[in-house]
């Protein structure tokens, strides 16, 4: 049973991890709680669903197109909504409220186009099982775990070893200073938006295959990803990555010890506890003097 708990933690944590990393990445250059990131994840899932079930695309090309569309949506939102507002001097609170409005529009559009009912990509394809030495894990869950690990490794390398990555870290440290030394912050935010959009689109698609989708899925996903990132520590990518697993383990432990209905209670108790006692998360970023 403990093995089952660990497997479930790995699966759920990987899903949360993708969202947490995208959220952390976006927050590092555009520090406000951008709720439209949840909508981008939902768009990835629904576009895949539409391409496969209505237009008859094969899953691979549908996923690629849906990812591209998610990236495009994330870019468009940044270019046409948040950048102009930021240029007008809007505060983080105003941007948060704007993102809530944009999220609501997207959720309503998904509702209108696809209906409110529960849909699943699982019946379309990717429903095979992989034999691991201790258990049989559905293929989609293996893909979720592997892609989460690969994206974490790739992003960590990108942020540490590339010029662009270093620029992103510089903006994260001080947007004002990086602007003064001549960096094009807006261009960086655009690039990060597309990157975050791709990760979120992938997360949405994988969740769509695994547990299904509904118009409100984006908000639920983003919320758990945000909690994971805050628990782990907003200062680092590895914090977001590990915080997601910590959250998934605590949730599943709650389900194991108490009952399924306690899942969200456990998540939010941990969230509040961290906000109260350790607001900078488990992996607090050390500030050098």
């Amino acid at each position: 049973m403990f093995v089952q708990l660990l497997i479930n933690t790995l699966i759920v944590g990987s899903g949360y991890g993708l969202i947490a990393m995208a959220f952390r990445l976006m927050y590092s250059v555009s520090p406000f709680f951008n709720l439209t990131l949840g909508a981008v994840a939902a768009i990835g899932a629904y576009v895949t669903f539409y391409l496969i079930s209505s237009l008859g695309f094969n899953p691979a090309s549908a996923i690629v197109l849906a990812l591209a569309f998610s990236g495009l949506v994330a870019w468009s939102l940044e270019a046409f909504v948040y950048k102009p507002m930021r240029d007008n001097g809007s505060s983080a609170m105003v941007l948060l409220v704007a993102s809530l409005g944009v999220y609501t529009i997207f959720e309503a559009l998904i509702h209108l186009l696809f209906g409110a009912q529960y849909q699943t990509l699982g019946t379309i394809n990717l429903s095979g099982q992989i034999d691991v030495w201790f258990a049989e894990i559905p293929l989609v869950q293996v893909i979720t775990i592997v892609s989460n690990a690969l994206i974490f490794i790739g992003l960590s390398w990108f942020l540490e070893h590339t010029f662009l990555g270093r620029q992103i870290r510089a903006v994260n440290d001080s947007a004002t200073l990086s602007h003064i030394i001549g960096m094009n912050n807006s261009r960086l935010i655009m690039i990060v938006s597309v990157l975050a959009g791709l990760i979120l689109g992938l997360a949405g698609i994988l969740v769509g295959y695994d547990t299904g989708m509904e118009p409100t899925m984006g908000f639920n996903l983003l919320f758990k990803g945000m909690i994971g990132a805050i628990i782990g520590g907003m200062g680092s990518l590895s914090g977001a990555f590990l915080g997601a697993f910590f959250l998934a383990f605590a949730e599943n432990l709650g389900v194991w010890v108490f009952a399924s209905e306690w899942r969200d209670v456990v998540a939010f108790v941990i969230f509040i506890t961290f906000l109260y006692f350790r607001p900078k998360g488990i992996f607090q970023k050390k500030v050098k003097n």
């Binding site: 479930n8 547990t211 194991w256 009952a259 399924s260 209905e261 899942r263």
Partner: peptide
Amino acid sequence: HHVNENEKDFRLL
């Protein structure tokens, strides 16, 4: 086993 209306993950259960 009580679950909430919006529950989607039954694996551990």
